[in-house]
Design a protein around this nucleic acid. Structure first.
Lengths: 347, 347
DNA sequence: CGAGTTTATGGTATCGATATCAATCACCGC
DNA sequence: GCGGTGATTGATATCGATACCATAAACTCG
């Protein structure tokens, strides 16, 4: 037996059916009126929109997602939200996809592959239309889930040897190598590396790898690396590290840091101790953070256009979604974005 | 006429019904087995989880949300994702809610009320279980939508005169006022304010207001304020501003900046020009960013525990959600978080 | 002017889960 | 051995939109 419930309470939000009834049309017509593409006469649309306004109706996309099989979500995993490089990428992604009515579902992995795996699972639970990750390495299970999710995947900030699907990135190792070569060109011969030993920060590990390759190629004294705890590496840790570095190898004349933040911390510590930068030791960073452009001495670094990585990743994803819709099946796309060594006063 | 579709394609993800059929139980039992609380015998659960694994089944929450009328989303609006104060708050919120299986839906307002209004609308479309905003002022329409959404609302980073629902924040004006008083106590008498004139950054405007009140109370020369463009304010802009400031009022002995970032930029510019900080001019900031603790001179600032604001906002929201579930109806909660003036070498 | 096409709209099935209530079964105490 | 209690499971209706197809009206053109 079905009983009609009569409620006066305006608590329960209005449904599309109610709007339809009130406007004297079918629910389907209301649905069309609320999409931009829907073919509805101008007059009807006006009437419907007025009713929507009157009832304070808000479309329920979670219901729409179920029937249309498109959620309009793009899952995005970044290592940390506090790192402005990654948040710039997230912003770029947002800019690229919001014009298509897509919305970002953001998660932080804390530089941890296991956390990434959990997040991939949690995100897939929301049935995103696509997913963008900030890494080229994953746990086997995460990889499997990404592959079999049946949605476009974009790996960014890396150039994986064996991509899952699409890629928008650059080689952290190559970038770091280029930076060391530049320092060599400037005349430095005892070059050390600070950071990047953590198993967690794979991009940092790649940068260290590039450093190692470079010192080998150039015949410089190898093995001068200092590491510290888990990412995210702080400015303070950069300061501590450079002190250890100079204690351990007093002849070093340049330090490449895994990121500008640690480079900045290192330089400030040098100031406090009266070590001239670059007189006593040159310091370079990675990432071209705002602080590096603004501090004194300004920091030599590797610049990548982080926002652009996001824009391109979003663009590639949109393209892939279009391909699915149009039943085209082009192969995965790999886009290599440029990096640039910027020489400043710290070296 | 209905035709049975036989597909070999594993493209289409498995459904709960398929898992159920394969495990020889009903869909309802699968659903229970996948929730932690569900009452299912150990033996059945094991069998179901094995089948889930075998088929690579991933729960579809977007379908679950429709029937349970709970999406598990918490919408969070922050002014900018690149500002580590706000991203720390977002991180705190995530920490607080993820234990309850809730997920954050993040949006950036770009310090723009109109954008906030659009975002509120877009977010409500996803039917979040609650919403957290980083402001106490909103467009009339945004306010109306928040009020009538029928979900708990938490306003943070502010103490609105007329709260919508719950509040977790502090008075930016009071904090700024306290900072000026501290400078006065240190002996500064010609104190200026940099930033915060934008109609967009209401927190910045409040800080400027607190400054004005303080100089009035203390009988100091008023009106020494410099503003610059729209937020987010950059380090570079802080540098430009302090130059204008000193040109315009050569007798200023201290500058309060709307944020640590502009304070840092100002200090660096002073370095470049050979103006001693604090000898020629003292500089204070707001927000206790990492750079202020690490640079030299370290920057006097107002510290707020940003992550804690997020944790508390999350906690308040969870409480409110519990209240709804248990049909309790306590009044809105207002939690005032402390701030602290930290005196360092820049003043 | 009639066949063919386009435009606007509605009816119905369906997306994939969960709420709710009912049914079954084992076990317990007296 | 019987009613009662709690644990486990299932059947069915439903959440609120959109896809898909059908239909009616208006319009096009040789």
């Amino acid at each position: 037996m079905k009983r009609t419930q009569i409620r006066k309470s305006p608590k329960r939000p209005a449904t599309m059916a109610e709007v339809a009834a009130r406007a004297g049309v079918s629910a389907m017509t209301v649905s069309r009126a609320l999409k931009s593409d829907g073919a509805v006469s101008e007059e009807t649309r006006r009437r419907i929109l007025a009713t929507v306004e009157e009832l304070g109706y808000v479309l329920d996309l979670s219901a729409g997602a179920l029937s249309s099989k498109r959620t309009g979500f793009v899952a995005v995993l970044i290592p940390s939200i506090n790192n402005s490089n990654f948040s710039d990428t997230a912003r770029g992604i947002t800019e690229a996809i919001e014009s298509q009515g897509l919305q970002m579902l953001l998660g932080y992995t804390d530089y941890d592959m296991d956390k990434e795996e959990q997040l991939v699972q949690a995100m897939l639970t929301r049935r995103p239309d696509g997913i963008i990750v900030t890494d080229g390495r994953h746990t086997p299970k995460a990889r499997r889930m990404l592959q079999s999710a049946g949605i476009p995947v974009v790996e960014t900030w890396d150039l994986p040897a064996d991509p899952i699907d699409h890629v928008v990135g650059f080689s952290n190792a190559e970038a770091s190598r280029a930076l060391v070569h530049r320092l060599y060109h400037q005349g430095y011969r005892n070059i050390a590396f600070i950071g990047g030993a953590s198993r967690r920060d794979t991009r940092g590990a790649d940068r260290r790898l590039g450093y190692k390759r470079a010192v080998e190629e150039l015949g410089l004294p190898p093995g001068r690396t200092i590491s510290f705890g888990n990412p995210p590496i702080s400015m303070e840790q950069g300061g501590e590290a450079i002190v250890h570095l100079i204690e351990q190898w007093p002849d070093v004349d340049a330090a490449v840091c895994v990121s500008d933040l640690s480079a900045f911390g290192a330089i400030m510590e040098c100031h406090r101790r009266g070590w001239a930068v670059p007189g006593r030791i040159a310091v370079a960073g990675f990432g071209d953070f705002e602080v590096s452009r603004c501090c004194w001495p300004r920091i030599t670094t590797v610049a990548v256009d982080c926002r652009n990585i996001g824009l391109e990743a979003g663009r590639v994803l949109l393209g892939a979604l279009d391909d699915v819709r149009e039943k085209r099946t082009p192969g995965p796309e790999t886009l290599i974005v440029p990096f640039q060594v910027i020489e400043r006063e710290s070296t």
